[in-house]
Every structure is written in C-alpha cells, then in structure tokens.
Simulated scan of single mutants.
Amino acid sequence: MEQSGVVFGTSGARGLADNMSDMVCFAYTMGYLQHLATLGEFSPHTMVAVAGDLRPSTPRIMGACIAAIKYMGGKPVFCGFVPSPTLCHYAFSLRIPSLMVTGSHIPADRNGIKFNRAQGEFLKDDELAMRDQNIELPEEMFNVNGKLIKPVAFPPVTNIIPSFIARYRDFFGADALSGLCLGVYQHSAVGRDVLTDIVEALGGEAIPLGRSKNFVAVDTEAVRPEDVSLANQWAAQGKFDAILTTDGDSDRPLLADRHGNWLRGDILGILAARFLQAASVTTPISSNTALEKSEFARHTQRTRIGSPFVVAEAAWRKRAAR
C-alpha cells in the first residue's frame, strides 16, 4: 500500500488515479474482503454492491474491484453511477458489503475507494485490520504495468435509485417543498439527476443549472470563488427560493439562500440537527462553533476530521447513554 502511493485518508483509500492501477485496486479489494471474512461479513457467494462517481478513471477502477470480488468468490452487484448515500441505503438494507469508487471533492486526476461494512461505516480500526491482511495476488491476471490482461465483464445495472428517492418522500411528505422553486447546481456530481428527482418528489420545482461534461471538484466546506460567483448570478434572476448542490459523490450538501449566499455543510448540519431535535451532536473540530453557541443540543462532542472518527464517537456516546 505504501509503495503504491495510495493510502487511507479521512474517508477511504485515495491517491493519484495513475497510481491506482488495476493491480493496486484489486489488492485493496482483496484485503477488504479478507478482513470482512474475519468478521463473518463475507464468504463465497456473498453479494458485494459496487458503485462509482463520474471521474474519468472511475469505470476502470470499478472494473478492477469487480474482478477482485469475483476472484474471491463473491457476487458483485453493479449499482451504476449513483451517490454514496444511495449505495449505502441499498447495501445496509440488505446487510451486504459495499464499496464506492470516488475521490469525493478532490481534483479529477485523483480518485479513491470508500469501503463499507455490511451494516455501517468502515472505521479506523477496520482500516488497520485491513492493512494487516496478507494477500496473494494472482499475478498471472496482470501485465507488467499492473493492468488486467482480460477485460472485466460488468454485471447488469441494478437500479437502486427509486427506493432511495422514496425514503425522502416517505419521511418528509410529497408536498414538503410545494410552492418552492429550487435551482440544482449539477456540475459533475454523480447525484445531480437524483437530487433533481428528490426535489420534484417532495413537490418542488427543480431547475438544473451548470451541468458539466468535465469533472468539477466542488468542495462543500471550502467553497470555490467560481461557485460563489455562479450562485450570485443565478440568484440575481430572482426566481429561486434556494440553490442546492453536492460534492462529487453527493454525500455532502451545499445550499445557497435566495440571495446566493452559500451555507457550508457544517451550518447545514446544525440546521438538520435542530430539525431532528437531536439531544447529542458529534462533529469534527473543523465545524463551525455556532453549534455550541446555539445551545439546542444537551451534549456536543468534537472529533478528528473524517467521518470514521465521527461515527465511532457517536456510536460510543449512544452505547454510553443506554
């Protein structure tokens, strides 16, 4: 892993796309499945769901992961190009492993793989255990450059989007956004069409904006000057009640008010937690201190940056409260 330049970061394994050769991604997937086998979450014939974002390198990396799943005796379920939360919603409901090929918000020349347990997030302890796995690569499957010699046959796409949209409609109601016109900044987010469909399923009018053929690295925390300018231009039209978008794999939201002022993900987290009447909130140290100042939650906890740290702390708090 260290030699490849592909390493675990805040969420999943990431690196330059050129360094994520077929062999490297195959090896990572083998280590992942071997680790799950020690936990009783993977064995021959186990379904493993696979999806990816819209980066140019994603299809090739997905193919390497699918090849490794087949080699390990698993049954790959190809979910197509869908948001990370859509993949997780499907896989968690079936209690099967899943992996998402995505670099999230980082530039197009990089990519990554987000691994999931059968019932939840892949935590830092899982990453350590995965790195300790001893794997025996079938070197005869690769050429000298680490490329798979034979093309990978992808399974037919399993459409997992309808149930994901229904989740929002069933929770909020079919008229939750009735009478509102929302601009959907699509850029190259993998959930750009799903986001439009969700708005419409909730009774709102969705107007697609800024769709891009090339990958755009939109960060929901460090908003680019270009995106500030775009939001101001769209808001000046005077027809949008809000403008919304996501990062590359559509697991982090970004929302602008009718004046084009972007509300970063950490502010949206506060609003969501208040809506849910959360008694306890766990968030990274980088989040806005307005959380504590708002004083709506009885308990707040700060963690290191990265969703595995947040999930682990929140789970510990939940157990401690019992």
Score class of each variant (00 low, 15 high):
residue 6 V to P: 00
residue 10 T to C: 03
residue 14 R to E: 13
residue 16 L to P: 11
residue 22 D to E: 03
residue 23 M to F: 01
residue 37 A to P: 03
residue 45 H to T: 14
residue 47 M to N: 10
residue 48 V to G: 08
residue 50 V to Y: 00
residue 51 A to N: 02
residue 55 R to C: 10
residue 57 S to M: 01
residue 59 P to R: 01
residue 63 G to H: 01
residue 63 G to A: 02
residue 64 A to P: 00
residue 65 C to M: 07
residue 68 A to D: 08
residue 72 M to W: 04
residue 72 M to Q: 15
residue 72 M to F: 05
residue 75 K to C: 08
residue 78 F to M: 05
residue 79 C to P: 00
residue 81 F to I: 07
residue 87 L to C: 01
residue 98 S to T: 01
residue 106 I to W: 10
residue 106 I to Q: 10
residue 106 I to L: 07
residue 106 I to P: 05
residue 109 D to N: 14
residue 109 D to I: 08
residue 110 R to N: 14
residue 111 N to H: 02
residue 115 F to N: 04
residue 125 D to R: 07
residue 126 D to N: 15
residue 127 E to R: 01
residue 131 R to Q: 15
residue 138 P to T: 10
residue 140 E to T: 14
residue 141 M to C: 09
residue 141 M to Y: 14
residue 146 G to R: 04
residue 149 I to R: 12
residue 157 V to H: 01
residue 160 I to E: 02
residue 167 R to K: 15
residue 167 R to L: 13
residue 172 F to I: 03
residue 174 A to H: 14
residue 179 G to D: 10
residue 181 C to G: 08
residue 182 L to C: 08
residue 183 G to N: 09
residue 189 A to V: 07
residue 189 A to H: 05
residue 189 A to W: 02
residue 191 G to V: 02
residue 199 V to K: 04
residue 203 G to E: 12
residue 203 G to Q: 12
residue 205 E to N: 11
residue 206 A to L: 07
residue 208 P to Q: 07
residue 212 S to G: 10
residue 213 K to R: 14
residue 214 N to E: 15
residue 216 V to H: 08
residue 219 D to E: 11
residue 220 T to F: 07
residue 222 A to K: 09
residue 229 S to E: 15
residue 229 S to Q: 14
residue 230 L to Q: 13
residue 231 A to S: 14
residue 238 G to I: 08
residue 240 F to R: 05
residue 242 A to T: 01
residue 245 T to R: 06
residue 248 G to C: 12
residue 249 D to N: 05
residue 253 P to K: 04
residue 255 L to P: 04
residue 259 H to Y: 15
residue 262 W to G: 07
residue 263 L to P: 00
residue 268 L to R: 01
residue 273 A to Y: 10
residue 277 Q to W: 06
residue 278 A to P: 02
residue 278 A to N: 04
residue 279 A to P: 11
residue 285 I to N: 07
residue 285 I to V: 14
residue 291 L to S: 08
residue 293 K to N: 13
residue 299 H to W: 04
residue 303 T to P: 09
residue 309 F to M: 06
residue 312 A to I: 00
residue 313 E to A: 15
residue 314 A to D: 02
residue 315 A to C: 13
residue 316 W to P: 00
residue 321 A to F: 10
residue 322 R to M: 13
